[in-house]
Every structure is written in C-alpha cells, then in structure tokens.
Amino acid sequence: MIPLSWYLVLAALLFCIGLYGVLARKNAVAILMGVELMLNAVNINLVAFWRYFTPDLIAAHAFVVIVFAIAAAEVAVGLALVISIYRRRKTVAADEINLMKW
C-alpha cells in the first residue's frame, strides 16, 4: 500500500516546480501554466487527505470541484488579458509589460 507521505512529497515537488515556472518564466502564458501546476498540486493534497483521513465525508470533492471552477475562471480572464496586452503592445513577455511600473 502507498503511505500518505508519497502523495504529499509528490504534491510538494509539483507545487515547487510550478512556483519556479511562475517566478522564472518570461512569457505570460507560461506563467499561467505554472499556476495550473500549483493548483493541481493542491488538488492532489486535498484528495489524498480525503482518502486517508475522512473518506466518509464529501467535502474534499466539493473543494476540488470548486478549485476546478476557479482555475477555469482564472485561465479565461488571464488569457483574455494576455491577448488584449498582445494586441496593444505586440509582446507577452512579462518583464516588458511595465506600463504601471512606479
């Protein structure tokens, strides 16, 4: 059988790879992909804790489904912003979008 720690370590590593992607990538679409990885790591943790500690409750499933909805909303708005910025500035490199830099 698989101990809980395996799932937690997998989710931790996946979260950190996503964090690296968010912080290091230049392209705004790639940053959004990193956010998706981080959300998935959280989902693995939610389902693993449900399975190991509270398999009789359904709360974890509700949380995961709502995380799906939030992720879909985030991607829709984020990519709309990216496309709008690309239309005006002809770039999606996050460090060149410094119009609001103080």
Binding site: K26, L79, V82, A94, D95
Partner: peptide, 22 residues
Amino acid sequence: IMIFAVMLTRGDVIEEAPVNKN
C-alpha cells in the same frame, strides 16, 4: 485555451531566452 492563447500571441519578439533575469 492555453494552446489557443500561445498561437494567438506568437510574436517575433519572444523567441529569446525563456526565463527572465531573476
């Protein structure tokens, strides 16, 4: 949607290093 966005925003300026300076 991601693939759509990648294909819609393919500029000629982004083909340099994939990472920023930090």
